[in-house]
Structures are given as C-alpha cells and as structure tokens.
Design a protein around this nucleic acid. Structure first.
Lengths: 137, 137
DNA sequence: CGGAATCCCCAATGATACTG
DNA sequence: CAGTATCATTGGGGATTCCG
C-alpha cells in the first residue's frame, strides 16, 4: 500500500457524504474517520457482545447523548455494519446488532485495540519522557 | 475483551491530556481518538515508507496546513510513535520517522486499512440500499 | 420507548503573518 | 526551512424539548 491510497478520490456516485469533513470520498479515510468519531467503536464493541436495544446501548456507552447515539447508529446502519429491527409494540422496541460485515470488522478492530492495550505502558513512558524533555528546555 | 475495557479510567499520572475531549484517560480510546484525528494515520502511513522532512510531509499529505502538521507531529512524537531529528544547519533540516513502537502500530493499522479497501464495495452497496429505503418511505 | 427537532457553544481547524 | 503566534470560522455535539 502506498500513502496515495489514502487519498484516492474513489467517488461513490450518489452519497450525501455522511461526514462531509471536506476531504474527498476516499474509502479508507472514510472508514478511519468513522472509527475516530468517538462513539462508533464503542458501539460496535458493545454490539459485538450481543444485540442490544436502544436504551440498553445508551446505558452501556457512558456519557453518550441520545442524539449522538441515534446519529451514530444511523451511520453504522447506513454503512451496513449494523442492522436495526423494529418491533412495533407499545411501547415500541428497537434492537440493533452487528451484520456479518460489521462482525468482520471486529477482527482488525480488536487487533488494533489489543495493540493499544499491549503498548499502553510504552506510550505512557514516552509521554513522561517527552514532558520531561519539554520541562527542562 | 469486554466493552468495559473501552471505558477504563487508567490514569496516567502527569499528562495534560493531549486531546482533552472530556473522556477520561482510557488507553484504548486514547489511541483510537488519535487515529481518528484526521491526519495522524495519513502521516504514519507516509512515514512508514521512509523518513521524511517537514516540507516533504506537507507535500505528501494533501491539504494539511502547517499548523496541523506541526501539531500532529508533536502528538505522535510525544506518544513515542515517531522520532524527530534536528540538523541545525542553515537552513535547518528536520527529519521525522517511525520509531519501533510506531512501526509496530503499522501492522494492525494496515490490516484495518486492508479491511476498508476489501469491503468498500459492500459499504457502497449498503449505502445505496439505505438511501433507496429512505427515498421511498 | 425511541426517536426528531431545535438551540447554542466551544474546540478543532484553517488562514494569515511573522521569526530564528 | 521549519516552525510559532494570532485571529476568524465552523460544525460537532451537548442540552433540551417535543412527538408517535
């Protein structure tokens, strides 16, 4: 892979661009942006345990507002990573869960998370060194 | 791994929190946030090719402002993912490159990128279906 | 219960200009 | 060349309210 791959302009025809942060439709940056949008990863990991209802998700993901929960779920659903199942009872019930596509993302994602956990001490140490160097300069 | 792992409050003692977006010092979210900060991944991938000088990076990463390039490089350096080598000539020269730690991140990162490229067609298709469902509803 | 709509603020980012 | 400093902008996202 070359760095250029991260800047391809692979247009996706229709598409009001879910996160129109200005960059063009690069598939890679598209996915990476999503993972960085603060909530998606959290939700995906939570759903990887088992399907959840809306309010269960709200409780499972601390501090997320319903607004952002709704929005993030829509994005993930739109991208085919999760499914949404409405049971029109009273009160209504809505369940969310990972699609096969979403489940397939968990593999590289958990590896990345594992990396983060494995190397956290090194990162903390590096920060301490960096702060030390900045202090006496 | 459980979802709770994403919300641990593993404090890192000192640390003015590079991205104080409000969430506590969770190592995992910390790393994921960094990858999502729009430029870090781009820079890491570029540097994984070979060490680069400041302006070479600026050219290699389209549309990044010098301000954001500097800031992102500082963050990456601070976290021990890249090194910074100053040659105090006139004009000065500064090279950046991946540390072993940064290089070790490339492995899970490229897997994630490979996933994105591999499954892009499915995502595009899912978006088309989603847009279609929204249209006639 | 599970949203949608609205208001609003501040933090992230860009633009610009200056410096060792 | 490789930054730093300052100002202006904007849109992400929290809080709140309303709806089926």
């Amino acid at each position: 892979m070359t760095p250029d791959d991260l800047n391809t302009d692979a247009a996706s025809a229709l598409d009001p661009a879910p996160s129109s942060t200005g960059h063009r439709n690069c598939p890679v940056r598209d996915v990476l942006d999503r993972l960085g949008d603060k909530w998606s990863t959290l939700i995906l990991v939570t759903l990887s345990q088992s399907p959840q209802r809306f309010n269960a998700l709200a409780r499972a993901v601390p501090d997320i507002s319903r607004r952002m929960l709704t929005e993030t779920l829509r994005h993930l659903e739109r991208d085919g990573l999760i499914w949404r199942e409405v049971t029109p009872s009273t009160p209504p019930s809505v369940r969310y869960g990972l699609t096969p596509l979403g489940a397939s993302l968990m593999s590289p994602l958990t590896e990345l998370i594992a990396w983060a956990e494995r190397h956290q001490p090194e990162i903390v140490a590096a920060r301490a060194r960096f702060n030390g160097r900045m202090a006496n300069s």
